[in-house]
Design a protein around this nucleic acid. Sequence first.
DNA 1: GCTTTAAAGCAAATATTTTGCGTTAGAGGA
DNA 2: TCCTCTAACGCAAAATATTTGCTTTAAAGC
Lengths: 184, 184
Amino acid sequence: MVEKPAVRPGGRSARVQRAVHEAVKTLDEEVPRDKLSVPLVAERAGVTPSTIYRRWGNLKELLADVAAERLQPDAPVADTGSLEGDLMAWAGEYMEEMTSTPGQQMLADTLGSTSLEQRQRCLKAQQHQLQLILSRAEARGETPLPTVERLLDGIMAPLTYRLSYAPQSLSKANLAQWIAATLR
Amino acid sequence: MVEKPAVRPGGRSARVQRAVHEAVKTLDEEVPRDKLSVPLVAERAGVTPSTIYRRWGNLKELLADVAAERLQPDAPVADTGSLEGDLMAWAGEYMEEMTSTPGQQMLADTLGSTSLEQRQRCLKAQQHQLQLILSRAEARGETPLPTVERLLDGIMAPLTYRLSYAPQSLSKANLAQWIAATLR
DNA sequence: GCTTTAAAGCAAATATTTTGCGTTAGAGGA
DNA sequence: TCCTCTAACGCAAAATATTTGCTTTAAAGC
């Protein structure tokens, strides 16, 4: 049904994937969104357009794939010493990243994609990060601890909702309030 | 900067807009999404493709425009006799609509659009509906009343988040719980 | 090494998008 | 009511992008 992104992870396939992803990321900073095209990406990546069409289908899905990958956490979550602090640090950084122009693009790319798969990757990553934060809180002996689900509904959901519908209305104060209310 | 959708509301312009919107809506039920194209819509609507390109820019923006329009409430909100009941009825209907395949498409179309404008239209509509429900509750003497903002953060945000990231995990029970927690 | 094959390249065939210019319909004034 | 003005549309040619059939390449597995 759905092809895995890297059937032959070690070789040419992987090289092409890296080159194409890299090309998308650099071009996205150089050209306005409506000028970004498959042939342009292909040229920068040093591959033929048909390779991209055969592998990703169309520009939209390629962009969703790249965005989903970029949303995978690369840096470990900071340890501030408290659950509330960790949440504020992590979600605050996420908020900052996603209110920027490229961040807004990434959000639109993932949410606009036809395939649920990419969004599920992002959700998994968020769940994983939150679980990590919760485990640390548990090790510290903080209690009572909320569930990951509760953190998603209480913090990430309103954050994401506003990132999409009213990004200019977002502030750290908002975030702090959601976190406090969710931990109460 | 951003052209108003109907500069000459009474005439040919409006007719073309209606025909194009109508064409998108019917075609969206007939052909798979990746077969939907501007030329196809143009033919069905009885206009030339260049008209659509000049007016909407590209397919993505056209779809976002149509989706935003469809998300404008047409039916008045049911009056169930209580704030909680009204919220459950209204949000429940929304949830049902948006978990369907065309609903998921509409959501992706609006959230994937480059222009914030369309999403703001949807937000305005939701705020308006919620305000209506709150006003009725106030007339009934229900108290204390939450703010519209609180309803958005507590109910619509988690609903929307799950509609995008994990639609299969949604249930009426979830919704009821968010509503109850938000009114508490 | 050899064989096998998934994925890439190439190029021709289609399809879509853009653009310049002529035409039309409706808004606003006389 | 008629006239004028112009935004929006139609048309068709040019420019781009997408699809497709076939060939070639490189990496996996023996």
